[in-house]
Design a protein around this nucleic acid. Structure first.
Lengths: 333, 333
DNA sequence: AATGTTTATGTAATCGATTGCAAAAAAGGA
DNA sequence: TCCTTTTTTGCAATCGATTACATAAACATT
């Protein structure tokens, strides 16, 4: 493997000049630049990036911590991040926590070890003080998940509003017995969407039956399980707002397996607008989140931070949209 | 940010000793080790990994090139890789090519720049010579996709056999008009599965109508489009073997939209056994690939290669399985 | 006690690039 | 032509760890 000094020797210049050709070409006369470039080509020289990183203290690498790479939602966000990173010459280190908080910590270590210039967290379940500490030392952006009242740049939609919108959709259709299959309560998104659900119910004077609130774990299977419990209630709900599309799909499956028709017997609304929602039968009414855009925006912010800029605005709330399809049914009479 | 010399000073030893405490603790007496560890804790010292990488020429990082992170199939393989990598102290750089061959080359550059110790390619569409060149210089493992008769370690299933098995399943059920929606023909997997389909047809003396062979692009939408064309043929097929589950889902949707029943009017078999296949209606008959295991095995091999071992065996063919569900229907009379 | 062995520690070179500073060369001005 | 300014290049230090080699200390053996 060739090194810079080899090029320098062949081109009859110093390594300083070679370095300049590579990094600040206009500081070098056209002649020498040409000579050096030829030597580089001749020797098939590739700069040793680690050496450069070591010297410049820039790894040109960002860490992305994601709760689940196999999730149709998060993987789209990841794509947005990765695409944008690449465009700006950054690499992405993948930190799949598999919903395990210890993994989250392990990955964050990479920042301390200076293996990444910054991080985007799609999951932030660690305690606030730890995160604050990290975010004070390194460029960090939160996307999707976030931590309340923490002064760290954040990109997300307004989950409370969106959840309220989804629930109100049911209310407008004439439902009163509306249930909610939530995500794990230690995740803020779950609490937010539950809150939105509650706000909608309360502001329309509808009773919130504690039995109508179930907690899943994001997975299709758990959506199935929780829905089973709901339909077996003495007075089952006529509508269920589900934390995400994956669980919604599980929930609909459960209803069907129990011989119920969706949306006639029980209506369902999901969240995220993953691809499958428009193919599944019935098509699923859901909240569209701009997944790719969230990733892109988060990466853009991170790039700013890594450039040493200070952000005037820290909270970016992107637009969501209720997409009405079949699973929520039509107006009840 | 503290450095090793700070620790050395505080502990009253040389940096050599500090380094030894970190890397070969048994070469240091218990007393000094204790002293050093205390100093490390006291100063909150974290070793600068880039400096270490620079010195040792080991990045403890592997590159994973993947054609599509949002794919339910590949993301499971990726998880297998990532999980195994982490266990062995390796980081994963994500290289999502978005099915773009140029991206593939860009990412491969990282090896030449010594930013990764090795690579796993889940997509290998570049030309053989280039890949050969790379694989001769660096530890590289191919998974899923591969290149014919190339002496690079490979992990996959036997796609030809599996495709034949899927097609023969139709034949056993009494179908004769069997179509195939293939993947892009520049991808070896597509050619293999097509080959398996053809083998099955030929060995059962069934006619292969060129009109029955369609080419999609892996996406659900293309499955939809290709199926539309098939059902609109003058003599439409009664069964369709589809390259992957995603396209199969699209295909089934198309059939339904055209008022056809699946499997009664047209039977479908997919490939990959992604989660959705067991939830979709009808449940989809498919070939199960051990996705996580493929990733794990590939990473294990790569670890061996990076350790300088030479593999006696180079081609690892994992077990696939035909999973019979509803979409392929029952025996025709 | 003298010698050889083993263990523990330190010295200083090294990895391959970048960059501040100085020197040399070229260009411009009088 | 000589002096000043600007441009181009090189010298050598530097980043923070690791490690070959040397030395010192501890221990064992006769």
């Amino acid at each position: 493997m060739m090194k810079m000094s080899d090029v320098a020797k062949l081109a009859n210049v110093s390594t300083a000049t070679v370095s300049r050709v590579l990094r600040k070409p206009d500081k070098v006369s056209t002649d020498t630049r040409q000579k050096v470039l030829e030597a580089i080509k001749e020797l098939n020289y590739q700069p040793n990036m680690v050496a450069r990183q070591f010297r410049t203290k820039e790894t040109k690498t960002v860490l992305v911590v994601i709760p689940d790479v196999t999730s149709p939602f998060f993987s789209e966000v990841l794509r947005g991040i990765e695409h944008t990173a690449l465009e700006s010459g950054y690499r992405v280190i993948l930190g799949d926590t598999e919903n395990d908080i210890n993994r989250e910590h392990e990955y964050i270590e990479l920042l301390l070890q200076q293996q990444a210039d910054g991080a985007i967290l799609l999951t932030a379940r660690m305690d606030r003080t730890r995160l604050e500490e990290i975010a004070n030392q390194f460029p960090v952006v939160l996307a999707c998940e976030y931590i309340d009242e923490l002064d760290v740049p954040t990109v997300s939609i307004n989950n409370i509003n969106a959840a309220r919108k989804a629930t109100e959709h049911f209310i407008q259709l004439g439902h009163t017995r509306i249930a909610h299959i939530a995500g794990p309560m230690n995740v803020i998104l779950s609490r937010d969407r539950l809150k939105g659900y509650e706000q909608a119910m309360i502001s329309h004077q509808l009773h919130i039956d504690p039995l109508y609130i179930k907690e899943g774990d994001f997975s299709l299977e758990s959506g199935y399980d929780q829905m089973l419990q709901l339909v077996e209630l003495e007075v089952p709900p006529t509508a269920v707002f589900v934390f995400n599309d994956l669980m919604a799909i599980g929930a609909i499956k459960a209803a069907k397996d129990k011989g119920l028709r969706v949306p006639e017997d029980v209506a369902v609304v999901g969240f995220d607008n993953i691809k499958m929602t428009s193919v599944f039968e019935p098509n699923i009414t859901t909240i569209e989140q701009p997944k790719y855009e969230i990733g892109k925006k988060a990466m853009d912010l991170l790039l700013n931070l890594m450039n040493g800029e200070t952000l005037q605005k820290k909270k970016f709330v992107l637009k969501d949209e209720l997409i009405i399809r079949e699973s929520s049914g039509s107006k009840r009479i």
